[in-house]
Protein backbone atom coordinates (compact mmCIF):
# COMPACT_ATOMS: atom_id res chain seq x y z
CA UNK A 1 0.00 0.00 0.00
CA UNK A 2 2.63 2.48 1.10
CA UNK A 3 4.87 1.48 -1.72
CA UNK A 4 2.13 2.09 -4.26
CA UNK A 5 1.56 5.50 -2.86
CA UNK A 6 5.22 6.36 -2.92
CA UNK A 7 5.51 5.27 -6.53
CA UNK A 8 2.48 7.30 -7.48
CA UNK A 9 3.88 10.34 -5.78
CA UNK A 10 7.24 9.96 -7.39
CA UNK A 11 5.56 9.56 -10.74
CA UNK A 12 3.47 12.72 -10.39
CA UNK A 13 6.50 14.57 -9.12
CA UNK A 14 8.48 13.43 -12.09
CA UNK A 15 5.65 14.27 -14.43
CA UNK A 16 5.36 17.73 -12.92
CA UNK A 17 9.04 18.32 -13.25
CA UNK A 18 8.85 17.28 -16.85
CA UNK A 19 5.97 19.57 -17.75
CA UNK A 20 6.64 22.57 -15.52
CA UNK A 21 7.55 25.85 -17.31
CA UNK A 22 11.16 25.54 -16.36
CA UNK A 23 12.34 27.91 -19.07
CA UNK A 24 10.32 30.79 -17.70
CA UNK A 25 11.32 30.25 -14.11
CA UNK A 26 14.90 30.19 -15.14
CA UNK A 27 14.56 33.31 -17.23
CA UNK A 28 12.92 35.03 -14.31
CA UNK A 29 15.67 33.94 -12.05
CA UNK A 30 18.25 35.14 -14.47
CA UNK A 31 16.62 38.53 -14.84
CA UNK A 32 16.33 38.72 -11.10
CA UNK A 33 19.99 37.96 -10.49
CA UNK A 34 20.93 40.42 -13.21
CA UNK A 35 18.86 43.07 -11.49
CA UNK A 36 20.48 42.21 -8.21
CA UNK A 37 23.92 42.57 -9.75
CA UNK A 38 23.04 45.89 -11.33
CA UNK A 39 21.52 46.98 -8.07
CA UNK A 40 24.62 46.01 -6.19
CA UNK A 41 26.73 48.10 -8.54
CA UNK A 42 24.46 51.10 -8.06
CA UNK A 43 24.47 50.50 -4.34
CA UNK A 44 28.25 50.43 -4.16
CA UNK A 45 28.46 53.83 -5.80
CA UNK A 46 25.54 55.65 -4.25
CA UNK A 47 24.76 54.11 -0.91
CA UNK A 48 27.59 52.09 0.51
CA UNK A 49 29.41 55.08 1.94
CA UNK A 50 26.70 55.34 4.57
CA UNK A 51 25.04 51.95 4.67
CA UNK A 52 28.17 49.82 4.50
CA UNK A 53 29.69 47.76 1.73
CA UNK A 54 26.96 45.17 1.75
CA UNK A 55 24.16 46.88 3.58
CA UNK A 56 25.37 46.00 7.05
CA UNK A 57 25.10 49.61 8.19
CA UNK A 58 27.66 51.98 9.62
CA UNK A 59 28.06 55.14 11.60
CA UNK A 60 26.33 57.19 8.87
CA UNK A 61 23.37 54.98 8.09
CA UNK A 62 21.40 52.06 9.47
CA UNK A 63 21.65 48.46 8.32
CA UNK A 64 19.50 47.69 5.30
CA UNK A 65 19.43 43.96 5.84
CA UNK A 66 15.81 42.90 5.96
CA UNK A 67 14.25 46.35 5.28
CA UNK A 68 12.88 44.89 2.06
CA UNK A 69 12.39 46.23 -1.46
CA UNK A 70 9.37 48.31 -0.35
CA UNK A 71 11.56 50.44 1.92
CA UNK A 72 14.03 51.08 -0.89
CA UNK A 73 11.30 51.84 -3.36
CA UNK A 74 9.80 54.32 -0.90
CA UNK A 75 13.06 55.94 0.23
CA UNK A 76 14.62 56.30 -3.19
CA UNK A 77 11.32 56.83 -5.02
CA UNK A 78 10.41 59.84 -2.87
CA UNK A 79 13.95 61.15 -3.21
CA UNK A 80 14.72 60.78 0.51
CA UNK A 81 17.65 58.53 -0.35
CA UNK A 82 20.42 59.05 -1.12
CA UNK A 83 20.63 61.35 1.85
CA UNK A 84 22.43 64.58 1.07
CA UNK A 85 22.77 66.59 4.24
CA UNK A 86 22.56 64.97 7.60
CA UNK A 87 19.79 66.79 9.45
CA UNK A 88 16.89 66.17 11.75
CA UNK A 89 15.26 64.07 9.08
CA UNK A 90 15.82 62.97 5.49
CA UNK A 91 13.49 65.21 3.45
CA UNK A 92 11.63 64.17 0.30
CA UNK A 93 13.23 65.72 -2.79
CA UNK A 94 13.36 65.13 -6.54
CA UNK A 95 14.47 61.55 -7.06
CA UNK A 96 18.03 60.79 -8.17
CA UNK A 97 17.43 57.43 -9.86
CA UNK A 98 15.24 56.22 -12.70
CA UNK A 99 12.43 53.79 -12.01
CA UNK A 100 14.50 50.92 -13.47
CA UNK A 101 17.45 51.74 -11.24
CA UNK A 102 15.20 51.94 -8.22
CA UNK A 103 13.88 48.46 -9.01
CA UNK A 104 17.44 47.19 -9.28
CA UNK A 105 18.41 48.76 -5.96
CA UNK A 106 15.27 47.27 -4.42
CA UNK A 107 16.12 43.86 -5.82
CA UNK A 108 19.62 44.05 -4.38
CA UNK A 109 18.47 45.09 -0.90
CA UNK A 110 15.73 42.48 -1.12
CA UNK A 111 18.38 39.84 -1.70
CA UNK A 112 20.16 40.75 1.53
CA UNK A 113 17.36 39.48 3.72
CA UNK A 114 13.63 38.96 3.56
CA UNK A 115 11.50 42.10 3.96
CA UNK A 116 8.27 43.62 2.67
CA UNK A 117 7.99 43.56 -1.12
CA UNK A 118 6.84 46.38 -3.35
CA UNK A 119 3.01 46.08 -3.39
CA UNK A 120 0.92 45.11 -6.42
CA UNK A 121 -1.07 47.91 -8.03
CA UNK A 122 -4.32 46.38 -6.80
CA UNK A 123 -3.19 46.75 -3.20
CA UNK A 124 -3.24 50.54 -3.21
CA UNK A 125 -5.91 51.43 -5.73
CA UNK A 126 -8.00 54.13 -4.01
CA UNK A 127 -11.02 53.20 -6.15
CA UNK A 128 -11.31 49.91 -4.23
CA UNK A 129 -11.09 51.58 -0.82
CA UNK A 130 -13.82 52.88 1.45
CA UNK A 131 -12.98 56.49 2.20
CA UNK A 132 -15.32 56.79 5.17
CA UNK A 133 -13.80 53.81 6.90
CA UNK A 134 -10.36 54.97 5.88
CA UNK A 135 -11.07 58.30 7.52
CA UNK A 136 -11.78 56.59 10.81
CA UNK A 137 -8.63 54.49 10.52
CA UNK A 138 -6.60 57.54 9.60
CA UNK A 139 -7.86 59.50 12.60
CA UNK A 140 -7.09 56.55 14.86
CA UNK A 141 -3.65 55.67 13.52
CA UNK A 142 -2.16 58.60 11.68
CA UNK A 143 -3.82 61.95 12.58
CA UNK A 144 -1.82 62.39 15.78
CA UNK A 145 1.25 62.98 13.63
CA UNK A 146 -0.13 63.88 10.20
CA UNK A 147 -3.23 65.95 11.15
CA UNK A 148 -6.90 65.18 10.36
CA UNK A 149 -6.50 65.28 6.63
CA UNK A 150 -2.76 64.71 6.38
CA UNK A 151 -1.59 68.33 6.32
CA UNK A 152 1.46 67.32 8.30
CA UNK A 153 2.62 68.14 11.79
CA UNK A 154 5.69 68.89 13.84
CA UNK A 155 7.54 66.34 15.95
CA UNK A 156 10.27 67.11 18.46
CA UNK A 157 13.59 68.79 17.62
CA UNK A 158 12.89 69.78 14.04
CA UNK A 159 11.51 66.42 12.99
CA UNK A 160 8.16 66.39 11.32
CA UNK A 161 5.47 64.22 9.82
CA UNK A 162 5.19 65.58 6.28
CA UNK A 163 2.03 66.78 4.60
CA UNK A 164 0.49 63.95 2.58
CA UNK A 165 -1.09 66.06 -0.13
CA UNK A 166 -0.55 64.51 -3.52
CA UNK A 167 1.71 61.70 -2.27
CA UNK A 168 1.35 58.83 -4.74
CA UNK A 169 -0.82 55.97 -3.44
CA UNK A 170 2.03 53.47 -3.75
CA UNK A 171 4.20 55.58 -1.46
CA UNK A 172 1.42 55.95 1.07
CA UNK A 173 1.12 52.18 1.07
CA UNK A 174 4.84 51.64 1.41
CA UNK A 175 5.16 54.26 4.14
CA UNK A 176 2.61 52.33 6.19
CA UNK A 177 4.31 49.06 5.38
CA UNK A 178 7.87 50.11 6.20
CA UNK A 179 7.51 52.96 8.71
CA UNK A 180 10.20 55.37 7.47
CA UNK A 181 12.34 57.12 10.08
CA UNK A 182 10.16 58.33 12.96
CA UNK A 183 7.01 56.82 11.66
CA UNK A 184 5.92 53.51 13.18
CA UNK A 185 5.34 50.72 10.69
CA UNK A 186 1.90 49.23 10.14
CA UNK A 187 2.48 45.70 8.84
CA UNK A 188 -0.46 43.69 7.55
CA UNK A 189 -0.97 42.13 10.96
CA UNK A 190 -1.80 45.57 12.34
CA UNK A 191 -3.42 47.14 9.33
CA UNK A 192 -4.52 44.60 6.71
CA UNK A 193 -4.25 45.41 3.04
CA UNK A 194 -7.90 46.41 2.74
CA UNK A 195 -7.56 48.92 5.56
CA UNK A 196 -4.49 50.41 3.96
CA UNK A 197 -6.51 50.82 0.78
CA UNK A 198 -9.28 52.52 2.78
CA UNK A 199 -6.79 54.99 4.21
CA UNK A 200 -5.45 55.73 0.74
CA UNK A 201 -9.02 56.26 -0.48
CA UNK A 202 -9.60 58.74 2.37
CA UNK A 203 -6.47 60.74 1.58
CA UNK A 204 -7.43 60.64 -2.06
CA UNK A 205 -10.86 62.06 -1.20
CA UNK A 206 -9.74 64.91 1.04
CA UNK A 207 -6.11 65.73 0.37
CA UNK A 208 -5.13 65.90 -3.25
CA UNK A 209 -5.10 68.96 -5.42
CA UNK A 210 -8.25 67.59 -7.08
CA UNK A 211 -10.17 66.98 -3.84
CA UNK A 212 -13.23 69.21 -3.69
CA UNK A 213 -13.21 72.08 -1.21
CA UNK A 214 -16.88 72.92 -0.79
CA UNK A 215 -16.24 75.87 1.50
CA UNK A 216 -13.98 77.81 -0.87
CA UNK A 217 -10.24 78.42 -0.45
CA UNK A 218 -8.98 76.03 2.17
CA UNK A 219 -6.22 78.26 3.64
CA UNK A 220 -3.93 75.25 3.60
CA UNK A 221 -6.24 73.25 5.82
CA UNK A 222 -4.38 74.21 8.98
CA UNK A 223 -7.48 75.05 10.94
CA UNK A 224 -7.88 77.87 13.41
CA UNK A 225 -4.32 79.21 13.13
CA UNK A 226 -4.60 80.02 9.46
CA UNK A 227 -8.19 81.17 9.92
CA UNK A 228 -7.09 83.48 12.71
CA UNK A 229 -4.25 84.86 10.61
CA UNK A 230 -6.68 85.46 7.77
CA UNK A 231 -9.11 87.25 10.08
CA UNK A 232 -6.32 89.44 11.44
CA UNK A 233 -4.97 90.36 8.02
CA UNK A 234 -7.45 90.29 5.16
CA UNK A 235 -10.59 90.30 7.30
CA UNK A 236 -9.93 93.15 9.65
CA UNK A 237 -7.78 94.82 7.00
CA UNK A 238 -10.75 95.12 4.67
CA UNK A 239 -12.99 96.35 7.46
CA UNK A 240 -10.50 98.94 8.70
CA UNK A 241 -9.96 100.13 5.14
CA UNK A 242 -13.71 100.70 5.03
CA UNK A 243 -13.70 102.63 8.30
CA UNK A 244 -10.90 104.83 7.04
CA UNK A 245 -12.80 105.40 3.83
CA UNK A 246 -16.02 106.24 5.68
CA UNK A 247 -14.10 108.40 8.11
CA UNK A 248 -12.59 110.34 5.22
CA UNK A 249 -16.01 110.79 3.56
CA UNK A 250 -17.06 113.35 6.10
CA UNK A 251 -13.86 115.37 6.13
CA UNK A 252 -15.43 117.62 3.51
CA UNK A 253 -18.43 118.32 5.67
CA UNK A 254 -16.13 119.28 8.49
CA UNK A 255 -14.28 121.85 6.43
CA UNK A 256 -17.42 123.58 5.24
Amino acid sequence: MFVVLLIALAATGGLYAAFAPAEEAQADNRAQSLAIDEGEALYRVGCSSCHGRSGEGGSDGPSLVGVGPAAVHFQVGTGRMPLQNPGAQAPAKPRAYTQAEIDQLAAYIGSLGPGPAVPEASAYDPADGDAARGGELFRTNCAQCHNFTGQGGALTHGKYAPGLDDVEPIFIYEAMLTGPQNMPSFPDTVLPEQEKRDIIAWLNAVNTSESPSPGGFSLGGFGPVSEGLFAWTFGIGALVALTVWIGARSAKARKS
Binding site: R139, T140, F148, T149, V206, S213, G221, F222, P224
Partner: peptide, 19 residues
Amino acid sequence: TINPVWVLGPYRPDQISTN
Protein backbone atom coordinates in the same frame (compact mmCIF):
# COMPACT_ATOMS: atom_id res chain seq x y z
CA THR B 1 -13.41 77.92 4.09
CA ILE B 2 -13.68 78.12 7.84
CA ASN B 3 -13.79 75.13 10.12
CA PRO B 4 -14.37 72.41 7.50
CA VAL B 5 -15.86 70.04 10.08
CA TRP B 6 -16.74 67.56 7.34
CA VAL B 7 -13.14 66.43 6.98
CA LEU B 8 -12.34 66.52 10.67
CA GLY B 9 -14.49 63.57 11.61
CA PRO B 10 -16.75 63.06 14.60
CA TYR B 11 -15.30 63.31 18.09
CA ARG B 12 -14.10 60.08 19.62
CA PRO B 13 -12.15 60.14 22.87
CA ASP B 14 -9.62 57.64 21.49
CA GLN B 15 -8.63 59.86 18.58
CA ILE B 16 -6.50 62.97 18.40
CA SER B 17 -4.92 65.12 15.74
CA THR B 18 -1.88 67.32 15.53
CA ASN B 19 -2.28 71.05 14.75
